[in-house]
Each structure stands twice: as structure tokens, then as C-alpha cells.
């Protein structure tokens, strides 16, 4: 596998603001790569740097080994699906999709044929003559996708493409994007602030915070082995144990992450498995969440949250319970 996109110590400053601050990164060819982070963390700026809408202040970006410094967007074989789709309102859907081919000088009949194929790829057969204004949000999204894919980019950039869609449509599009990626075999770089989306779709995830990448890994790596307190709390929810608390319960004296679903809630009389760490405290709240119940427990001033499958046992609100976890479930993190 070759490297599709390479960031070499890239920074982008806007005045005093360091939107991207020393990012080094390799995205492999054919990979579905997600950039995850809260708003303002630099993920979208990184995407714009790949597309060529913006240039790094320092550092270099290589796309398939070629240095991209100063290269305008129209000289890069990457295409973008914009957050607001950016369809041209004065053109039909067909003309929108064929736009890139028209610019390349492809004859009309040929490019119309290609546009039809691209539209059928996103299940919009027969929409060529419509105007973007006559489409629903989900359909516009597909047109934007077709318009990018018809140019056969080596890298497809997606900037929060599902952000404007409702939940049902979003889940459907997630599946379709995955299968498109699988069928086309090109590199997808996907920007999102939705950790669920990133975990369920991507091969690898880069987690951004304050202009830096704080962790890169497969979804299960970043979920199971968060390197920092930020990752632990941003990806899923987690109990972050202080060094003192961790040390008092048999772990090393370090910040430690403990996922709620890894904690067993024991009623008085129940016995923990051998080798488990155990603490006890008072239930401070119960939250019904459908499949699970979230139990918050006050352990000598520290709040720990555990989840229990609904209906597994009846936990008394305000009562005393014990919490037990395998020591291997407690993940030691880097000091920040």
C-alpha cells in the first residue's frame, strides 16, 4: 500500500490562532480515514489543506508522493463533497454532475453518459433534468457525491457530509458510503464531529484537539485504549480516574480510563469475580436509556458511572452498591 496523503509537520495559523499546529500524518491508499474532533479542533482546516482551498503556513503536504505546496485545487486529483453540498443553483443536476468533465473538455455526449452512470451509482437515475432546488436534502447530498465521484478522484474528501440529514437518513447514508468505498476502492477522508459516525464507518480515526492530532488508530484502538483524558471523554463516555484514586484501587498512580460498561454493579450479598478491583458507594442517580440503565454512584466523593443491561437487576435509587471491574479494563493514559 502506498501513502495517499502525507502531512509533514503541517501548521496553519490565522493571525494569532493556530488552527492546525504541527500535524504529521499518513493516510494510506484505499483507506476510509476519519478526522474526528470538536468544532475548531482543526479537522476541517486539514481537509481544506488537502483540497488546496488553503495552504499550510509551515510544513508540507504530499499527495501520492508529490509535494502539493502552492498547487491550486484545480490541479489536484482530489474532489470534495461539501458540508452544504455547494451545488450550482443555475445548472441542472445533470450539468452539475458533468461540470468537472466539461471543464476537462470531454465531448457532450460522452460526459452526459458518464453523469448518468454517476447518478445511477448514487441511486438517482432520471434526475438529470431537475434543478438542485427541486431536491430534498438527502438527494442533494447524493448529487454532490456523484459530482465528485464522476471525476474519478484518487482521494475523496467529505466535509461533515451527513451533518444536515436527519437520523434515519444519516444511518442509511453511512451504510451506502461504506459500500461505495468498498466498491470503488479509492481513499476516503471523512471529517466529522460525531464519534459514533467515525467509529462505525472508518478504518482508522485521527482525533483532533486544539489543532493537534491527539491519537490515531483503528476505531477499537481509540475506544479501548484512549491515550489521553480528552480521547477517553470525547470518544464514547468514560470514567476518568485520578492518579490517587487509581493507586488506591490497585492500579498504577496515573490518570486511568474506565468505560462504564466494564463496571459490574453488585447488590449487597453479590460476590465479585476473583481479581477484580472493588469499591462501594451510594447510588446518586438512575437513568433509563432503553437497552441499558446508567447508574451513577458516589464513591467517597468520586462519581463513577456504570451501565447495566435493562432488566438484569433492580438497583435501589439512593441505596448502597459495590462496583467491581477487571484490572485489565482500567486503561492507563499519558499524562497531559
Amino acid at each position: 500500500m502506498s501513502i495517499a496523503v502525507n502531512f509533514q509537520n503541517v501548521s496553519r495559523h490565522f493571525g494569532q490562532v493556530r488552527a492546525v499546529d504541527g500535524v504529521t500524518l499518513d493516510i494510506e491508499e484505499g483507506e476510509f480515514f476519519a478526522m474526528l474532533g470538536p468544532s475548531g479542533s482543526g479537522k476541517t482546516t486539514c481537509l481544506r489543506l488537502i483540497a488546496g482551498f488553503d495552504q499550510p503556513s509551515t510544513g508540507h503536504i504530499r499527495i501520492f508522493g508529490e509535494i502539493a505546496d502552492g498547487l491550486p485545487p484545480y490541479r489536484r486529483n482530489v474532489n470534495t463533497v461539501f458540508q452544504d453540498y455547494a451545488l450550482f443553483p443555475h445548472m441542472t443536476v445533470g450539468a452539475n454532475v458533468a461540470y468537472g468533465l466539461m471543464i476537462k473538455g470531454m465531448p457532450r455526449a460522452e460526459r452526459e453518459q458518464k453523469a448518468r452512470e454517476a447518478l445511477s451509482l448514487v441511486k438517482l437515475n432520471g434526475f438529470e433534468q431537475r434543478r438542485p432546488s427541486q431536491l430534498s436534502g438527502g438527494q442533494r447530498q447524493r448529487v454532490a457525491l456523484a459530482r465528485a465521484l464522476v471525476n474519478k478522484p484518487r482521494v475523496l474528501l467529505l466535509d461533515e457530509p451527513l451533518g444536515a440529514l436527519d437520523l434515519k437518513l444519516r444511518e442509511q447514508m453511512q451504510e451506502e458510503l461504506r459500500s461505495l468505498h468498498h466498491d470503488l476502492g479509492i481513499t476516503f477522508v471523512f471529517v466529522t464531529h460525531d464519534q459514533g459516525e467515525a467509529l462505525s464507518m472508518a478504518d482508522r480515526v485521527a482525533i483532533f484537539n486544539e489543532g493537534r492530532i491527539v491519537q490515531i488508530g483503528t476505531p477499537s484502538e481509540v475506544y479501548e485504549r484512549p491515550h489521553t483524558r480528552f480521547v477517553a471523554s470525547f470518544v464514547g463516555s468514560s470514567n476518568v480516574l485520578t492518579p490517587d484514586f487509581a493507586a488506591a484501587n490497585g492500579g498504577p498512580r496515573a490518570w486511568t480510563s474506565l468505560r462504564p460498561e466494564k463496571i459490574d454493579v453488585l447488590l449487597p450479598g453479590e460476590i465479585p469475580k476473583t481479581g477484580q478491583a472493588i469499591v462501594s458507594g451510594q447510588v446518586s442517580s438512575l437513568q433509563y436509556q432503553g437497552a441499558v440503565v446508567r447508574v451513577a454512584v458516589n464513591v467517597a466523593g468520586t462519581r463513577l458511572v456504570a451501565t447495566v443491561p435493562t432488566g438484569a437487576k433492580t438497583i435501589p435509587d439512593g441505596g448502597t452498591v459495590s462496583l467491581a471491574w477487571d484490572r485489565s479494563s482500567a486503561v492507563v493514559m499519558e499524562p497531559e
Binding site: 483540497a51 488546496g52 482551498f53 491550486p72 485545487p73 484545480y74 482530489v78 474532489n79 470534495t80 461539501f82 458540508q83 452544504d84 455547494a86 451545488l87 450550482f88 461540470y99 468537472g100 466539461m102 471543464i103 476537462k104 459530482r147 465528485a148 471525476n151
Partner: peptide
């Protein structure tokens, strides 16, 4: 005119003059 419109056109391979003319 959405600012992305111009970026979208350049992203699809149109240079500044082509973007001005077509978009």
C-alpha cells in the same frame, strides 16, 4: 453566492477564469 460555490468549481478542475465564466 455561497462561498463554497467557487471552491466547488475549482475542486472540480476549473481554474479562476473558467469558474468566473461558468459559475
Amino acid at each position: 453566492l455561497s462561498g463554497n460555490m467557487i471552491e466547488a468549481s475549482m475542486d472540480l478542475g476549473a481554474d479562476g477564469f473558467q469558474t468566473f465564466r461558468h459559475v
